[in-house]
């Protein structure tokens, strides 16, 4: 049976490794800000971790606003326009 075949991400261990590598990369990128000098347009670009924090916060806001503000406003049943 093909269905019984184990694929790469069927194994929880592989997912844990992937997430582990990913988190380490995140930490590394964050720390890099303390080493690399950045030529800036804007004052707050100088803050260490600006882009990291911005990316994180932007996504959280995006998801929360979409889920708790937009969806209740615009969600309709799939056949809404049919009758």
């Amino acid at each position: 049976m093909e269905n019984d075949k184990k694929y790469l991400w069927d194994n929880p261990r592989n997912i844990r490794i992937l997430l582990g590598v990913f988190f380490v990369l995140c930490v590394g990128l964050f720390m890099a800000d303390f080493v690399v000098y950045r030529k800036v347009h804007l004052k707050f670009e100088e803050w260490p971790g600006f882009y990291a924090v911005f990316g994180f916060v932007a996504c959280v806001i995006l998801v929360l606003v979409s889920k708790y503000v937009l969806r209740p406003l615009v969600k309709r049943p799939e056949d809404y326009y049919d009758h």
């Binding site: 990913f22 924090v53 990316g55 996504c59 998801v63 615009v74 309709r76 326009y81």
Partner: peptide
Amino acid sequence: QLLFFSAFAFCLLLLSGIYPSEIRAINI
């Protein structure tokens, strides 16, 4: 940094169950 931490936010939101589940619906 921007992209990795966006992905990081996605991971946390998904693992914590806050990420909006896909719903059979349309949006006006």
